[in-house]
Design a protein around this nucleic acid. Structure first.
Lengths: 205, 205
DNA sequence: CAAAAAAAATGAACGTTGTTCAAAAAAAAT
DNA sequence: ATTTTTTTTGAACAACGTTCATTTTTTTTG
């Protein structure tokens, strides 16, 4: 266990500490209201230190967006104890929407905020690995449904994308406040009413 | 035609000029990259003047978001020459997605940016009139479909919200760059492939 | 038409923001 | 104990949204 090893570990630990502080503040007061100075204060380091461990704010946002995908991914993984792919697909949407609504700031960061994607472009990374991995779990489930005789005449990728868009659209409208003030008969349940309409449809396919 | 009348007209004209300049810059360089100073420069007025005509940046963004809804709304209105509600509903989604993709900055402002909704809250306006009016056109069409015997067992509002979420989700994923780097078989057509999957489904309902 | 009053336009100044970097402090190697 | 390397620091910079005392322009008044 050399000194270099310990230094490397300490470096990782401080990076994690910064991310932890950033996430705490994001959940407390929102991404846009959280400044680098806030984060530095939160963990009792100076602004300069934050910039030693992260190239810029985009880098912090990107790493935090990855953490969000780990959380959503593990929620999805749990669903694979369900053998029936149709049942799994039904639950998957619920888990997705639940995650989105209960972790609005993280969801926003993962799917709406531009920073993580800008970071990807800057680091000439052609693929959005987090998105690919998560979408693969949806595609895998849809494929199993098709193999069992459901969704006749449908293509795995197109259908998966359609489903993703559907639940994502619901989360977005809710999170970005576009369901507020639209005079729904029952504003509190419109998300699940909408999702149930979708369930009713795919069950007959 | 009193002086007061002319002043009122001039006031409106300058407001419109500011909005026009703001929209131009938004389309050119994006909402986030456009500053009040940019807008003032664009129309050859000082920063201070902008603040005489608009309370703050949110107010400008809100008014511009309303203009966006006028544009989308008139696109929707044109569809009502189509008598068959199913055919109209099919086209409606295409018009919506087309509008979103061809007017990404405006779409973002209308459905994703927080500012217009914050402005609404500040001015204790309980309803999002622009959203309500546009959603009404979808609901009206879905209702006609149901009256013609389609979508049996479905509720107008839930189904309309589901459809809105679906096309909105597609636009969001595209605009916020979440379709880039997801290794689609055909990245260029995934939006319409997804929409066609949806068409295939509702046609059978 | 000139003087007074009202309205409109201005831009310097304020507090914050993300970011940089020479200097200081701490740790490791000699 | 001294030198070298690594880590941390916070003042300084440019740019942001926003404010408001001052100036300029327009309208009203006598």
């Amino acid at each position: 266990m050399s000194v270099a090893d310990r230094k490397a570990r300490e470096k990782e630990a401080l990076k994690a500490l910064i991310l932890k502080g950033a996430k705490k503040l994001f959940l407390e007061k929102g991404i846009e209201q959280t400044t680098i100075r806030n984060i530095a204060d939160e963990i009792d380091y100076s602004v300069g230190t934050v910039y030693v461990y992260f190239k810029d704010k985009n880098a912090i946002l990107h790493d935090l967006h990855s953490i969000g995908f780990q959380e959503l991914g593990s929620n999805f993984q749990e669903l694979f104890i369900i053998e029936d792919p149709m049942e799994r697909l039904r639950k998957m949407g619920i888990v997705y929407i639940k995650f989105g609504i209960e972790n609005q700031e993280m969801y926003d960061l993962m799917f709406n905020v531009k920073a993580p994607m800008e970071y990807l472009e800057e680091s000439d990374n052609d693929f959005w690995d987090e998105g690919v991995a998560t979408f693969d779990l949806v595609k895998k489930t849809v494929e199993e449904c098709i193999n069992k005789g459901h969704f006749e005449g449908h293509n795995v990728e197109s259908l998966s994308f359609m489903i993703w868009s559907l639940v994502h659209g619901m989360c977005c409208l809710e999170i970005r406040q576009r369901t507020k003030g639209v005079k729904f008969t029952n504003p509190d349940t419109i998300l699940f009413d909408g999702y149930n309409a979708y369930l009713k449809i795919i069950d007959k396919l």
